[in-house]
Write a protein that binds this DNA or RNA. Sequence first.
DNA 1: TTGCGTCCTG
DNA 2: CAGGACGCAA
Length: 621
Amino acid sequence: MNLSLSDQNMHNSSEGCLEDDKPDVMLPCFRRNMYDEPLASYSSGSIISQLLRKTIHNKRALDESHFYLSSSTAADSGQEDQCSVSSKDSTVEAASPSAHVSTGASMEGEHPMTDHLQAKRARVENIIRVMAGSPNSRQHGDSERSDTDARDTREAREAYRENKRKQRLPQHQEHSVGGPANRRPGSSKNSDNCNNKDEECHKLKEQLHSMQRLLRQLQEKFLQVYNQEDPEHNDRDETEVVEHDTLGESTESRYASTEDDYERKNSRVTAECKDRMKVVGYLVHQRENQNLQETLKQELSRAVNDCVDRVFKKVSSTGLDLSPQQRMCSSPEMQISVGADRKSQQAGSTQEQPQAEEAAVKPRSLEYYESVEAQSPQDQTEALSLVVRKPAMTPLSSVTPTVKRPYPVHQTPFQFSYSTPLHDSQILEHLLKYGPHSSFGGLPCMPPSMDRTSPDSVDLPWDTIAMRSKVTSSHLGHHARASTLGAVTVDNMCLPHVKIECGELQSMAERNPYMSLNIQEGLTPSHLKKAKLMFFYTRYPSSNVLKTFFPDVKFNRCITSQLIKWFSNFREFYYIQMEKFARQSIVDGISDVKDMTVSRDSELFRALNMHYNKANDFHIR
DNA sequence: TTGCGTCCTG
DNA sequence: CAGGACGCAA
């Protein structure tokens, strides 16, 4: 009973969070991009901010962009939560009622295009055509050709769909070839074809201009949509615009003003973030403009950090009455700030973990586990570095992963920039140094959760355990890095780092080139390995989580069932081992949980390592 | 019904 | 680890 209940709760919490987590999905990607590319390259004045201030009138393009967004939604509707879908749909409807039928005429009427602009467009279009090396080019070109008739629009959409489909599979490939190349003339990929650098530079400039124009249009569209979608927020329109200029500050003040209504604020924040994410995703995807990305990243990071800080301050001061789960799901803000939030959430959920563990274990032998309660957390730690954090992670893990999955398309744009495995480690480092820390800095509430977790300090032995992977397989490779990260983080802080680790795992899994590129029907031994490792990250992965972690697998009922079955088996084995250990402990005369320790030479350790790390793919030090 | 989980068995 | 039986919840 307890077990089922707790488990159910866990799932529910995660599921519930999913809806609002959409925005979060972007974050991981965002983070990695942030680290991926030098922030320094950005000027203080963000392009977006400036652009947002200026409203350009070209609805055609906007419609296109809108289409893009809606299309993305449609494409992934299956995986997206209904909330997001519905919101997006509504947005589309509200924003572009007549959409593609009369857009051109109405647009022209309201905001006639200047000859100059048209000429420019034609030029850009031409350039894009010339550059038509990448599928995306087409996309851009279509967007630019906003003055063409409805047929063109339809065509563009078709093309977009085509691109979309293609992207879903060979995303990285496509982007690695087309995206980066466009953005970086010096890219090795295209260097061969760049005999005429000047020409290409010129083209790029042109493209940049067109992209900026589109951005303006999109922003206008966004504002319109937002207004129609959220009449009650009309009074905030001004604020909204400003917000884009200075996300951090504006959000700060805005949220502060509504702080009295926590629930409302959360939902609003989520919605706003969603919208923002949409825009961001679209822009980045369409433009792949490095500068834009940088700007977006900075602004997003600021906003996220602010949100996190605020949420945690709030939670720390008043949220103690909330259960971990409640906190996780009740505060979309936390979810929004994926990276940082996760950490904090985990911290909060950490306390929960032991309970869940306990509950899960009890069914088998309540009497024994009574005294082993604290053990379970430790047990998880055993197999992997992740394990140590595992207790705290589990709740979160289930939450965040699910969230991400719904936005594969949106994430894709960001993923483009990641084509090299090296990025993972780099990202990890950056995460540790920047993303996580920045958010941590303003998280006074972290300590509380940590404190609760501290009881797990009984696990101290485990905390010192760090895993280093020698696995070279593509799948395990991610984990290996993650593990390494975990080890590093362990040295400093337990829970926060763990969270980071989780985030990294997810983002890594999502962005991993291999996974996206080679989608296969069945599950391979490497998948099994990965699942085993993953087991120490989350013992009850939802189907969404599984999808997130196995992007290279074409999911269907069978595959999902198989994976779930695997985890069921893992749990079975794991709990059996726990029970054994508990029984043995009792036989050994251990009466206090605090007296229980799992040393490296213990049977439990051996058994778990044998089962989950049979090939010693991961070294526990 | 369907999905997910446990338990048992091979 | 996979299958099957069974229970439970939505």
